[in-house]
Measured scan of single mutants.
Amino acid sequence: DHWEIRVGDITIHLKDVDEEIIRWVEEALRNGDDLEEIKRWVEEVLR
């Protein structure tokens, strides 16, 4: 699977990601969370 999350001008590409993570990231972006923080979290989860 390949996911693209778009929020404003930001697009995040994710592969082999659980839908729950996608929802979490979308929510975090909508809440204005720091992008670097989100990326770190996702990388942590995917490890």
Rank of each mutant, 00 (worst) to 15 (best):
K39A: 07
E43W: 08
V7N: 05
R6P: 03
E36K: 05
D16S: 07
I5D: 03
I5Y: 03
E44I: 03
V17Q: 05
V7G: 04
E43T: 02
L29A: 01
I38R: 00
T11E: 08
E44M: 03
R30A: 15
E19V: 10
I12Y: 15
E36Q: 08
D9S: 10
D16F: 09
L35T: 04
L46Y: 03
D18T: 14
I10T: 07
E26Y: 11
K39L: 15
V25T: 01
G8N: 08
E37T: 10
L14V: 12
I21F: 10
W41N: 02
W3I: 05
G32Y: 08
R6F: 07
V7F: 13
D1V: 12
R23C: 03
K39N: 07
I21W: 07
V25D: 00
A28F: 05
A28P: 00
R6Y: 05
I22A: 08
I38Y: 01
E36D: 12
W41A: 05
D18V: 14
R23E: 03
G8S: 06
V25N: 00
E37L: 12
R40H: 07
G32E: 05
V17T: 09
L35F: 13
D18I: 13
R40E: 05
R40C: 01
W3A: 03
L14D: 01
L46S: 01
D9R: 03
E37Q: 11
I5E: 01
K39G: 05
V7P: 02
G8I: 06
V7Q: 05
I5T: 01
N31P: 08
K15S: 06
E20T: 10
I21K: 02
E27A: 14
E44N: 03
W3T: 07
L35P: 09
I38S: 00
V42E: 00
H2I: 14
G32Q: 07
K15C: 08
E19I: 13
L35G: 03
D16I: 05
D18W: 15
I38V: 10
E44R: 02
E44P: 00
E43C: 12
V25A: 04
R47K: 15
V45P: 00
V42N: 00
I38M: 03
L14C: 05
V25G: 00
I22S: 03
D33P: 11
I5F: 13
V45K: 04
I12N: 02
E20K: 06
W41G: 01
L14A: 04
E20H: 09
R47Q: 15
L46Q: 03
E4D: 07
L14G: 05
R6N: 09
W3N: 05
E19N: 13
L46N: 01
D9V: 13
D1N: 15
K15V: 11
N31K: 13
E44V: 03
V25Q: 00
L35N: 04
E27N: 14
I21V: 10
V45C: 08
D33E: 13
V17W: 07
I10F: 14
H2M: 13
H13T: 14
G8C: 00
H2Y: 15
W3L: 06
R47N: 15
R6H: 13
V7R: 02
I10A: 06
E26K: 14
E37W: 13
D1R: 03
K39Y: 14
R23V: 04
K15N: 10
R30F: 09
E27I: 11
